Amino acid sequence: MEESQTHVSSPFEALQETKSRRRDLLPWWIKTFTWLFMLMAAVVPIGVVMGLMGLSFTMSLYGFETTNPISPTGIALTLLILFKGVTAYGLWTEKDWAVRLGIIDAIIGLVACGVAMFVLPLVDRSEGFVLNFRLEPILLILYLLKLQKIKPTWEAL
């Protein structure tokens, strides 16, 4: 009679084998943008302080640009960048809410890009109607689709 030998592993090893990291669900390009937006969110408060001191600070996102962080455009950009930073932090630290917030972030980004590409040229007629096609919507659509695809697995882990 042969005895079968089984490998006895520690509970810690078993846990590592069965539980994968949520971060591993993210492709390299989302991980790269995650770091970029966390860095941008960390720098934005410096720009706000500079704006309060009367100094200029260039901010740009989704086709909106300003050198005054205290202007309406600057405040909107500050809020967008901080929102993206919180989303990026949540994705990087594998928070339960991160993918849901990322989906909202992608939708807000697509709306903002649409406004910048199609509405602003109609409102600002100083140079005539100039259609400004941006590449961000392509990445935002890919981001949205990827987050929707990994959402069930993310929530199950």
Rank of each mutant, 00 (worst) to 15 (best):
D105M: 05
L61A: 06
T73D: 03
A76F: 10
D24H: 08
E3G: 09
R125T: 14
F57H: 01
M38C: 09
I30E: 00
E155A: 10
V111W: 07
I108Q: 05
A42T: 12
W29H: 08
I75C: 08
A112F: 06
Q5P: 05
V123I: 15
G63E: 01
G109F: 00
L144Q: 05
S60L: 03
P69C: 00
H7Q: 13
T93M: 10
P45G: 10
D124P: 07
T58M: 07
G90M: 05
E136G: 05
G109Q: 00
P152V: 07
L82G: 04
G102P: 07
Y62L: 11
F64I: 04
V43A: 13
L145C: 15
E136W: 04
L122R: 11
Y143D: 01
I104D: 08
W29D: 07
T73W: 02
V44Y: 09
Y62A: 09
L55N: 12
P121F: 03
Q5K: 11
V48P: 01
K19T: 14
Q5T: 12
L157C: 05
S10R: 07
T18M: 14
L139G: 15
Q16S: 13
L25F: 08
T6H: 13
P72R: 02
W28S: 14
M59E: 00
G47T: 01
L120Y: 09
M40F: 12
L82V: 10
A42Y: 10
H7L: 14
S71Q: 03
T153V: 14
K149Q: 13
F33T: 10
G90T: 06
L157A: 08
R125D: 10
L26N: 01
M117N: 03
F83K: 04
I81Y: 01
K95V: 02
S56V: 04
T87Q: 12
I141D: 01
V49M: 12
V99I: 13
P69K: 00
V123G: 07
T153E: 15
S56N: 08
S56T: 11
P69F: 00
S4Y: 12
V43M: 14
I103N: 07
K151R: 15
K84Q: 15
R100A: 14
L15Q: 13
M38W: 03
T67N: 04
T66W: 00
P72Q: 02
A156M: 11
P152G: 06
W28I: 14
I46E: 02
M59C: 00
G90R: 04
L52F: 13
G74L: 00
M38T: 07
V43I: 15
E13D: 13
L91E: 03
E65S: 14
S60M: 10
S126T: 13
L147W: 02
T6S: 12
L145P: 09
W29I: 10
F129I: 14
A116K: 01
V49T: 08
S9N: 10
I30Q: 03
V43E: 09
G74N: 02
L36N: 06
